[in-house]
């Protein structure tokens, strides 16, 4: 497959994620949109990894493997992030009985 298709697919998924973050006020949905963006990036990384492998497989049989390892690490970080993030959301819900992010405007003052 030409790499363009993957690029545009990833960009589209990423932008849908951005729009979700911007339009929703539910903290959990926002969180899910962030996961969506991460996955878009992961997809692109894998596609690029295969592209490099295709170009350089003759000289280096392991070419492009770093890209897939990066995806692995991103998944690790995302898992850690989700565990802490959901803990925060639960905490917030317990204190305010709401998961509206605008309720968190205590950053002001």
């Amino acid at each position: 497959m030409p790499i363009n298709y993957y690029i545009f697919l990833s960009v589209a998924l990423f932008c849908i994620g951005v729009s979700g973050v911007l339009t929703r006020r539910n903290a959990i949905i926002i969180f899910m949109c962030v996961e969506l963006m991460l996955n878009a990036v992961n997809l692109l990384l894998v596609a690029f990894s295969k592209m490099h492998h295709h170009a350089q497989a003759a000289t280096n049989p392991n070419a492009g493997i770093d890209g897939q390892l990066f995806v692995f690490f991103i998944m690790v970080v995302a898992a850690a992030e989700v565990s802490v993030g959901l803990a925060i959301i639960v905490m917030m819900y317990r204190n305010t009985h709401s998961i509206d992010v605008n309720f968190l405007n205590r950053l002001k003052n």
């Binding site: 030409p2 790499i3 993957y6 690029i7 894998v46 295969k50 170009a55 493997i65």
Partner: peptide, 20 residues
């Protein structure tokens, strides 16, 4: 300019558990 760059489909073994 990426017209000639192709992503390998269905071949290559870098995605296998052993290599990774």
């Amino acid at each position: 300019d990426m017209k000639n760059q192709l992503a390998d489909m269905g071949s290559g073994d870098i995605g296998l558990i052993r290599n990774l």
